[in-house]
Computed example of a mutant assay.
Amino acid sequence: MHAPRTGDRVFITGASSGIGAALAREYAARDASLGLLGRRRDALEALAASLPDSKRHRIYVVDVLDRPALQAAAHDFIAANGGADIVIASAGISHGTLTERAADLSVFDAVFATNVNATVATFAPFIDAMRAQSNPCRLVGIGSVAGIRGMRGAGAYCASKAAVHSYCESLRVELRNTNIRVVTIAPGYIATPMTSKNRFPMPFLMPAERFAAQAVDVIARGAGYRVLPWQMGLVAKLLRLLPNVVFDFAFSRAPTKQRKGDA
């Protein structure tokens, strides 16, 4: 197993809370220098202050939809640290959607912009700098088990995460003969503020800290694709194998994800 090197330079979007913040704490515990990007200054400052050697970490109060600001943050991190070793596109949003509801069309736009387009925009400014380095580097996309099959009432989220999986696979092939490995991590149910809104059972719910510890090891190995926790990996394989007629019958009455604005 390849352990993360001490002194890794790690840039994380969506670092204000949830998976992004958990990954930041895990990497800081392993002596990494971090770039923490998110929309909430108070949350980023509190996170940075709680980390070992807090002054070595940089915070960027940026919305990932603001491409010029995202690019400027990437360039600042590269300049301040002499490069970047790991970039994790962790920013994401989730809302239930129903296609027949006109109000949900803008929600589809927002989910795809944040979950898919911002992943591309996060990676883009780092690739040339990483190629110029001699050390192994990682670009990490955060997908989801929800991207494996389309779930009732979650069309935007499921489709966006399926797009993240396919995009990262394309990028992985493009960068195969370089020093950059593209890693796709598909979380199952992780205990975060995002999943706390779910109003249905969440099998194999995993604490964010345990997820982060396992994810950092997966990233260090440069695995192309991994579902965490492993139990959800088995569920994912079964979902892929289900014939459509069986899948449709089994999930047509499943509970739906909460829509934006629903109580």
Rank of each mutant, 00 (worst) to 15 (best):
A46K: 14
V111K: 01
A113H: 01
V64K: 04
A84V: 15
A32R: 10
V107G: 07
A80I: 02
E45C: 03
A80R: 10
L47F: 11
N115E: 09
D53T: 10
V87D: 02
A72R: 12
G83H: 08
S33F: 02
A103K: 09
V61I: 14
P68K: 04
S50P: 10
L36G: 11
L44M: 07
F112H: 11
F112P: 04
A43I: 00
V107I: 15
S90W: 09
L98C: 05
L98R: 15
N115S: 06
H57Q: 04
A24W: 08
F108S: 02
L70K: 09
A110F: 10
F77L: 06
Y27G: 05
N81Q: 13
P68D: 03
G92R: 05
V61K: 03
R25Q: 14
G96C: 06
D104Q: 06
A110K: 13
L37Q: 10
I93V: 15
D85E: 10
S54E: 00
H95Q: 01
I88E: 08
D109F: 03
P68V: 05
F108M: 10
I86T: 13
R40C: 09
A89G: 04
A103Y: 01
D42A: 15
G92L: 09
A79L: 07
V87S: 02
V64S: 09
G82D: 03
K55G: 07
N81I: 06
G83N: 08
V111F: 01
I93W: 02
V107F: 12
N81K: 05
L37V: 14
L44T: 05
A43K: 14
T114K: 06
L98S: 06
L105R: 15
A102L: 13
S54G: 00
L65P: 00
L34P: 06
R30F: 04
L23K: 11
T99H: 00
V64P: 06
L36H: 09
L105C: 05
D85H: 14
G92S: 05
D76N: 07
R67Y: 08
F77Q: 01
P68F: 01
P68Y: 03
K55T: 12
R25V: 06
F112N: 04
